[in-house]
């Protein structure tokens, strides 16, 4: 009963969200009055054309940025009321990331990249856990390789292992297959959904790829900063 109650909580609650960037000539509003909730366990795609505000929305949802108006409540906490370090702590304890350009730290090995979120948590048996995840993504034997010694697909697999290493409740993926060829992209997709299922993580994917979006339970469509549709698959 308790688990179910938690499961049905809103892990993310967006209310009247808007974001405006100040530019030299005039202000540029990228998001306008966006509202939606995402419950634990959901898999959601945010789709839309270039410039529709997808990445901005992801940044706000993940607590990487602050809204101009409205609120973002992540696990019940309004991120506007948190300072940068409190938001970092919130991310470290609850959130995982996968990026289009992998965002591995080039000077650290694959293993070290995966251990960072665990180390930040002060977790025990960090190396064992990281190796287990690298094994899960099929890269245990490449654990001591640096990112520039890995292919794009391999780098994204390391990124997946890192994203799941802190057992996040919510995983953000920004165009996770955008930089990969079709076949590699498919493998990454499968791995992402498999891991998501195994760990029971809430997943939010920002993508152009409608095929990828079709694999999620819900699709939020953005156009010119506005939510134009929010449908379940």
């Amino acid at each position: 009963m308790i688990d179910n109650a938690i499961d049905k909580q809103d892990v993310l609650k967006i209310e009247s969200l808007s974001k405006t960037y100040k530019s030299n000539a005039k202000d540029l509003t990228v998001l306008k009055d966006v509202n939606f909730n995402i419950q634990a366990g959901e898999t959601v795609s945010i789709v839309g054309p270039s410039g529709s505000g997808k990445t901005t929305l992801l940044g706000l949802c993940a607590g990487l940025d602050k809204p101009t108006n409205g609120s973002v409540a992540l696990f019940g906490k309004n991120i506007s009321e948190l300072d940068e370090d409190q938001r970092a702590l919130l991310r470290n304890e609850n959130v995982g990331f996968i990026f289009q350009n992998f965002q591995l730290i080039p000077t650290l090995t694959a293993l070290e990249n995966v251990t960072i979120p665990l180390e930040l948590q002060g977790a025990k048996k960090v190396k064992e856990k990281a190796l287990e995840l690298l094994d899960r993504v099929g890269l245990k034997d490449r654990a001591n390789h640096y990112p520039n010694q890995l292919s794009g697909g391999e780098q994204q697999r390391v990124s997946l292992a890192r994203a799941f290493s802190n057992e996040p409740k919510l995983l953000f993926a920004d165009e996770p297959t955008g930089n990969l060829d079709g076949e590699t992209g498919d493998k990454i997709e499968n791995l992402l959904f498999d891991l998501n299922k195994e760990k029971g993580t809430t997943l939010i994917i920002v993508t152009h790829d409608l095929e990828l979006a079709s694999r999620t339970s819900r699709v939020i469509r953005l156009k010119s900063g506005l939510v134009v549709s929010d449908k379940s698959n």
């Binding site: 940068e84 702590l89 470290n92 990331f97 960072i116 930040l120």
Partner: peptide, 11 residues
């Protein structure tokens, strides 16, 4: 930025 994104404090 990656460190920060993964939850590292600025200090």
């Amino acid at each position: 930025a990656i460190f920060r994104c993964l939850g590292m404090k600025s200090n």
